[in-house]
Structure formats: structure tokens, C-alpha cells
């Protein structure tokens, strides 16, 4: 059986699943809108979580948080379920498909057969939509892919029950209730306020402070960890910032797109100006990534090079601090 479902490619999987499920239910909500209302933008340095043998740095909110906040702020009801038994997980999925209900699934990437091998790491917070089943093949709309695809029931079970950090445990989710009309205004404001609070948080590893901390660490890494490890860490930063799913510039461009759309909804010109400013900041992140790549490309670099990129990062922190203070003010004035 196949549910009539329109696949739209998105930059980021979680926004994409939400946006696609909303569109399926008759609400035209763009990916940037989901990201902004769900307060997806972040910076966080997580030294105690190692990804591919390097400390984790994230440019976005915790997996699942964007959807949760978005749902709460626009007033839709979401049903979430996790399972111990793969059989039960499969039964619930089939039941939903029988009822003509496309569902979101959290999956691990490592065994996702349609991804290029190089991208298959043990990352468990990927999201996709299942919109039907033909024989034992499930019809898959993976938002980061250009077109729809399929997975056999064995393949799907494997990715739904991947293990490790953020193990999906068969996590299935779908909207169950919608408001009569979607009022985005207050949801946008709440989303922006939350992001400003996160980015300006007085916590050393979060937001602007987190960016400054990583800048400080970059200065130390080559001496403390050796050039090899330092370069591996720099490569990891670039991958977290620019890899598939970020829309480029560590999600800063998606956020700028959100601010542009939000300025129209709220009829607030300041937000349009701030969108332009965020684009410039996104470009600075791209320059930063480019300069990092010049360091790790030849596996040896002068000490100066590390200090240079650290200074670049500090300049970005400065810009983002000013930016989020202005954004906070722009929203406050709107109330």
C-alpha cells in the first residue's frame, strides 16, 4: 500500500520530516520555519561526548528538541513511542500505514544502505518518513535525499534498533491533533527568545561562551594533543559545521532564511535586517571552515595558523554576541 505523500528534500533531516509531515496534513510550513520556531540554532561544545574519537561540537539543538518545541509552540499534538521489541515496533509501524498515516522514524545512519559508504557512521539521530509498504519493502522519504527510496523490513529493523549514543529504540512519531488555524506569530517569538537565551547563556560550553572556549582550545591543541590529533579535531569541527544536514555555515544560513520569513509574518523590518547580518555571519563560519581545511590538508602547519583560526573564531563569537543581543531587543520591542 502506498500513502499519497509528497517528498520535499530538505537540508536537515529533523526539520525536513516535520515540514513534510505538516505539508502532508495541509499546513504549509517551510523547513526554516520549523527550525526557527523549534529553536534549532545553537553552539555547544561537549567535551565528555566523543564522536569519531574527537570531542563533540554541535551547531544545533539536541536531537528531537526541535520537533518537540515546534509542536508545543504551534499547538500540534505528537505521539511518540519507543520499543524494546522489534516485532512490536514493526507492528505499530504497519498499523499506522494501514490507517493511511505516514510516520516519522528515528534511525541510525551506519546501516542505512542508500547512503554513500563514506557517510555511514554510528550516528543515531537521523530521521525519515515511512509512507507505505510494498510486499516486504518499506517506502521511505528521507528528507536529505533528492528522491524517495525503499528499505526491506530487515534493513529497516536494523536502523531502527541501532545501538550506541542516542539509540533510537524503534522511536516512531506522528502528529495526532492540529489546531484549526496555525498561528505562527507567538510561536516565532517564543522560538527566537529561546535561541537568544541559549546563545547568550552564562554557561562556559554553550552559545557564544562555548565558541570562545573552543577558540581557546584550538590555540592549545597542537601543543597539548600534538599536531595530528589537533588536525583531526579541526576536521571534526568542519564536519559538524558543514556536513550534510546543516544547510551550510553551521545552520546559520537556515536561520537567516527563517528570520527573513519571520520578518514578513511579524511585519518586522528589523528581522529582515538581522537576516542579512546572519548571512554575513554564516559566511564568516564558511571562511573559518576553509581556513581550518588549509591547516589539516597537509597535516603540518605553523603554530601561527592555529592562532589565526582561533582569532577568527573569537571574532565570530564577538559578532554573534552582538547579533543575539540585537535580536533579543528586536523581539522584545515587538511585544
Amino acid at each position: 500500500m502506498e500513502i499519497k505523500f509528497t517528498h520535499h528534500q530538505s537540508a536537515h533531516c529533523e526539520n525536513g520530516v516535520v515540514s513534510n509531515l505538516m505539508k502532508h496534513n495541509g499546513f504549509d510550513v517551510s523547513e526554516p520555519m520549523v527550525f526557527g520556531i523549534g529553536s534549532g540554532l545553537l553552539f555547544c561544545y561537549i567535551p565528555f561526548l566523543k564522536v569519531n574519537h574527537a570531542p563533540a561540537i554541535t551547531y544545533r539543538a539536541m536531537p528531537g528538541a526541535i520537533f518537540k518545541r515546534f509542536a508545543k509552540r504551534v499547538g500540534i499534538k505528537i505521539k511518540h513511542e519507543k520499543f524494546k521489541s522489534p516485532q512490536k515496533a514493526k507492528a505499530r509501524l504497519d498499523e499506522n500505514l494501514q490507517n493511511n498515516n505516514p510516520v516519522g522514524l528515528q534511525v541510525g545512519v551506519y546501516n542505512l544502505e542508500y547512503f554513500p559508504d563514506e557517510y555511514r557512521f554510528h550516528f543515531n539521530a537521523h530521521n525519515l518518513v515511512v509512507y507505505g509498504k510494498e510486499d516486504s519493502n518499506y517506502l521511505i522519504s528521507d528528507p536529505v535525499m533528492e528522491t524517495v527510496t525503499t528499505l526491506s523490513d530487515k534493513q529497516l529493523e536494523k536502523v531502527r534498533f541501532a545501538k550506541g549514543a542516542f539509540a533510537p529504540k524503534g522511536h516512531i512519531y506522528y502528529p495526532t491533533g492540529f489546531p484549526d488555524t496555525l498561528s505562527l506569530e507567538s510561536a516565532i517569538k517564543k522560538g527566537i527568545k529561546h535561541t537568544c537565551k541559549d546563545m547568550l547563556a552564562p554557561v562556559p560550553i554553550v552559545g557564544v561562551k562555548g565558541i570562545r572556549m573552543v577558540a581557546k582550545l584550538i590555540r592549545k591543541w597542537p601543543k597539548k594533543k600534538g599536531v595530528r590529533k589537533a588536525n583531526h579535531y579541526l576536521g571534526q569541527i568542519v564536519r559538524m559545521q558543514e556536513e550534510i544536514g546543516t544547510g551550510g555555515g553551521g545552520f546559520r544560513y537556515i536561520y537567516a532564511a527563517f528570520l527573513q520569513e519571520a520578518s514578513k509574518v511579524l511585519k518586522n523590518d528589523t528581522l529582515a535586517e538581522l537576516s542579512k547580518e546572519m548571512t554575513v555571519i554564516g559566511d564568516l563560519w564558511r571562511d573559518f571552515a576553509l581556513d581550518l581545511s588549509r591547516i589539516y590538508r597537509n597535516r603540518k602547519a605553523k603554530m601561527d595558523a592555529y592562532n589565526d583560526v582561533a582569532s577568527q573564531l573569537e571574532a565570530i563569537a564577538e559578532k554573534e554576541e552582538l547579533f543575539f543581543k540585537k535580536l533579543r531587543k528586536a523581539i522584545k520591542n515587538d511585544d
Partner: peptide
């Protein structure tokens, strides 16, 4: 830049 990071 990210292809090199991935290759590395």
C-alpha cells in the same frame, strides 16, 4: 574543505 575532512 569538508571532502578533505571526511577523507582524513
Amino acid at each position: 574543505p569538508k571532502t578533505i575532512a571526511l577523507d582524513n
